[in-house]
Measured scan of single mutants.
Amino acid sequence: MTYKAILNGKTLKGETTTEAVDAATAEKVFKQYANDNGVDGEWTYDDATKTFTVTE
C-alpha cells in the first residue's frame, strides 16, 4: 500500500511517499524522515487518503 506524507516544516516543505504494509509502519518511516530533515511538529493522519501531515 502506498502512503503519503505532507511536510509543512519551517525549513522543509514538500511531499514524499512510501510503500508499507500498514499505517503504523509508514508512520515510523515518515517520522524518521522528518527527524532526519529537522522537522518536528504536530502529526495527523487521514485514513481515507492514506496521508500523514506534519506541521511545525
Rank of each mutant, 00 (worst) to 15 (best):
1 M>S: 13
1 M>H: 15
1 M>C: 12
1 M>L: 13
2 T>H: 08
2 T>E: 09
3 Y>H: 03
3 Y>K: 02
3 Y>L: 02
5 A>L: 15
5 A>R: 00
5 A>S: 04
5 A>V: 15
5 A>D: 04
7 L>D: 02
8 N>Q: 08
8 N>D: 10
9 G>D: 03
9 G>R: 02
10 K>I: 14
11 T>G: 12
11 T>H: 13
11 T>F: 14
11 T>E: 10
11 T>I: 11
11 T>V: 11
12 L>Q: 08
12 L>E: 06
12 L>N: 07
13 K>C: 13
14 G>H: 12
15 E>I: 11
15 E>M: 12
15 E>D: 05
15 E>W: 14
17 T>D: 05
18 T>Y: 11
18 T>G: 02
18 T>W: 08
19 E>W: 15
19 E>D: 11
20 A>P: 01
21 V>H: 13
22 D>H: 04
22 D>C: 05
22 D>S: 07
23 A>D: 05
23 A>M: 12
24 A>E: 13
24 A>Q: 12
24 A>N: 07
25 T>E: 13
25 T>G: 08
25 T>Q: 13
25 T>L: 06
25 T>M: 11
26 A>E: 01
26 A>F: 01
26 A>S: 00
27 E>P: 00
27 E>I: 11
27 E>K: 10
28 K>C: 10
28 K>I: 12
29 V>E: 07
30 F>Y: 00
30 F>S: 00
30 F>W: 01
31 K>T: 05
31 K>P: 01
32 Q>N: 08
32 Q>C: 06
32 Q>K: 14
33 Y>R: 03
33 Y>F: 11
33 Y>P: 00
33 Y>Q: 04
34 A>M: 08
34 A>N: 01
35 N>E: 14
35 N>K: 15
35 N>M: 15
36 D>S: 09
36 D>V: 08
36 D>N: 08
37 N>H: 15
37 N>W: 14
37 N>L: 15
38 G>W: 08
38 G>N: 09
38 G>C: 08
39 V>M: 11
39 V>I: 14
40 D>K: 13
41 G>F: 05
41 G>H: 03
41 G>R: 01
41 G>T: 02
42 E>I: 14
42 E>A: 10
43 W>F: 05
44 T>M: 09
44 T>S: 11
44 T>G: 06
45 Y>I: 01
45 Y>H: 01
47 D>L: 06
47 D>W: 08
48 A>H: 11
48 A>I: 11
48 A>T: 12
48 A>L: 11
49 T>I: 06
51 T>W: 01
51 T>C: 04
51 T>M: 03
52 F>S: 01
52 F>M: 01
52 F>G: 00
52 F>V: 01
52 F>L: 01
53 T>K: 05
54 V>P: 01
54 V>G: 01
54 V>N: 03
54 V>I: 13
55 T>M: 07
55 T>V: 09
55 T>C: 08
55 T>P: 01
55 T>L: 06
55 T>S: 10
